[in-house]
C-alpha cells in the first residue's frame, strides 16, 4: 500500500548539536508503529519536526503524497496529521461534549459561526455522542473536564483527536500518568482505533508497546537504530546497548 506518511532524511540541529540525524520513516494506512528510545533520544524533537512546530534543518515530511515540510502546524492538522499530548492539554472549564463538539465543528469548517450551538446541530451531536460512547465518556458528557478523572481525560484526548478525522495519528505517551486500574480502558481504546488510520505511538511502557505495535522503531541519539518487528527488538544488540548505555549513564549521574 502507498505511504500515507513519510519522513525522508529529516535533520535538525540546535547550534552544533544534532538532535535529529537523517531520520526516515514510512507508514501506510492501518500501520501501528511504536517509536521508543531512551531519554534524550530526540523523540520530542522528532514530534515537533513532524507536526511543524519547529522547522527541520533539512529533509522532508510528506503527508498523503503531498510534501508538507513548508506547511505550518495548523495546515498539517487540516491535512490529517493529528497529535495527542503527553500531558493532557484539555480546557478545564469545558465539558467533554464541548471538546469533541469543537473538534467536529473545526473539522467541518463551522468553528467560526457566530450563532447557534453545536448542541442543536444534529449531525455534530451524532458524532459527539458516537465518539464519547465509544470511549465510555457518555455519562460525563456535560461535566467539566476539571471534575473528571485523569484516565478519562486521557480518553478524551483520544476522542478529540479522532473527531478531527486524522489520516495519521501521533499518540504521545497515551497512558502516561494513568493509574494501573485505568490502563485497560485506554488499551481498549487504542485497539479500537479506526482500521485505516496510521498510528505512530511514542511510548515508554514496553508492555503497552508490545501489545499495541506491529512494528517498533528505536531512536537513539537522534538516529534510528532499529526498525522492525516487536519480537526482534529486544534481541537487537544496538538497542540493548543504547538502553543499557543510558541506564548506566543514569546510574552514574545518580
Amino acid at each position: 500500500m502507498s505511504a500515507v506518511f513519510e519522513v525522508k532524511n529529516l535533520k535538525r540541529s540546535f547550534g552544533g548539536l544534532v538532535v535529529t540525524n537523517d531520520v526516515s520513516i514510512s507508514m501506510a494506512p492501518g500501520d501501528r508503529v511504536a517509536l521508543i528510545g531512551p531519554n534524550g533520544a530526540g523523540k520530542t524533537t522528532f514530534v515537533n519536526l513532524v507536526t511543524g512546530t519547529i522547522p527541520p534543518s533539512s529533509g522532508e515530511v510528506r503527508l498523503g503524497g503531498e510534501t508538507v515540510t513548508k506547511v505550518d502546524a495548523i495546515g498539517r492538522v487540516r491535512r490529517g496529521l493529528v497529535r495527542s499530548f503527553q500531558v493532557t492539554r484539555l480546557f478545564q472549564d469545558m465539558t467533554p461534549a464541548e471538546h469533541v463538539g469543537l473538534a467536529v465543528l473545526q473539522r467541518s469548517g463551522r468553528a467560526g459561526r457566530l450563532f447557534g450551538s453545536f448542541l442543536t446541530m444534529p449531525d455534530v451531536m451524532a458524532e459527539v455522542s458516537e465518539l464519547l460512547e465509544k470511549l465510555g465518556l457518555a455519562e460525563l458528557a456535560h461535566r467539566k473536564v476539571s471534575e473528571i478523572a485523569y484516565g478519562q481525560q486521557r480518553l478524551l484526548e483520544i476522542a478529540v483527536a479522532l473527531a478531527l478525522k486524522p489520516k495519521v495519528l501521533l499518540l504521545d505517551e497515551p497512558a502516561a500518568g494513568v493509574p494501573q486500574s485505568d490502563t485497560g480502558r485506554i488499551e481498549q481504546a487504542l485497539a479500537d482505533l479506526p482500521k485505516d488510520l496510521a498510528v505512530l505511538m511514542i511510548e515508554h511502557d514496553m508492555d503497552l508497546v508490545f501489545r499495541f505495535a506491529k512494528r517498533v522503531i528505536v531512536l537513539a541519539a537522534g538516529t534510528i537504530i532499529f526498525d522492525g518487528l516487536p519480537a526482534d527488538v529486544t534481541k537487537d544488540a544496538r538497542v540493548r546497548e543504547a538502553y543499557l548505555g543510558s541506564y548506566a549513564h543514569a546510574s552514574h549521574v545518580a
Partner: peptide
C-alpha cells in the same frame, strides 16, 4: 456560538 466556544 461555536465561535464563542473556540475563543474560550
Amino acid at each position: 456560538s461555536p465561535f464563542g466556544m473556540l475563543c474560550r
